[in-house]
Write a protein that binds this DNA or RNA. Structure first.
Lengths: 120, 120
DNA sequence: TTGACATGTTATTCTTTTATAACATGATTG
DNA sequence: CAATCATGTTATAAAAGAATAACATGTCAA
């Protein structure tokens, strides 16, 4: 797999809220598939497993098998690579082109403030 | 659009290499759609425009219309939000769970070194 | 004002994802 | 060892994404 393939897999894995939710759930410690399914009541068990497999292919989840249980561990290292190649450099860029965009009437001072769910 | 919708749009926009290529192309200054198409010879003009519209909806591209030209500007501010909500916190996590994963035999010391295109 | 040019729009096709169902396996516990 | 439980596998339908074609619009420059 090329580096570009890896970034494809990573961004795509992060591109679904259910998968981001899973990451948040295992952030503070691994969980079994069963526990995850019990939490994600809006999703079918099969759907959760499919999402886990997408996360696993992206390298964000590492599986540890214990008896008949499957413990899903977070591996945040790939996110480090995203940081180095994409986020860091572009975050820097965000500053240098501020004036440029303001001239275009884009006054949006960035979007995330709180976790509001009510806008357009 | 909720915050989650915005992250969906952002990660999905970043999840295609053609769009990441476009971002890199306009990183150091805006380009017209025509110029971009001339560079991205492997893509149809319509495809490039579709990608631009995905980037625009994600807030990563801001359009300035000048006569019959369309200048595509990069707006890296949304990436800032990705950094704050996802990358930063998870990059921190990457350190605390290192030992945990090493016990699972995951020795992969992160993936991106150079832009090799030859592995599995 | 007319022809060339840069871009836009709509529709269509093909592929990939997402969600679910039905069935299968392998471990645990009484 | 037999029933139960946690997880896996395969197949299928619905939805979303990607690539292209054909046609449309608005601008510039002679």
């Amino acid at each position: 797999m090329s580096t570009e393939d890896k970034f494809d897999a990573l961004f795509k894995a992060l591109g679904h809220r259910a998968r981001r939710r899973i990451l948040d759930l295992i952030k503070d410690g691994p969980q079994t598939t069963g526990t995850l399914c019990a939490t994600l009541t809006d999703l079918d068990r099969c759907t959760v497993m499919q999402h886990l497999s997408v996360l696993e292919k992206a390298g964000l989840v590492v599986v540890e098998r214990r008896g008949r249980e499957r413990w899903n561990h977070l591996d945040a290292l790939p996110i480090h690579d995203v940081q180095n190649r994409w986020i860091g450099p572009y975050a820097a860029q965000a500053i240098t082109m501020l004036g440029d965009l303001e001239r275009l009437g884009k006054t949006d001072a960035s979007l995330v403030k709180a976790d509001d769910n009510s806008e357009t």
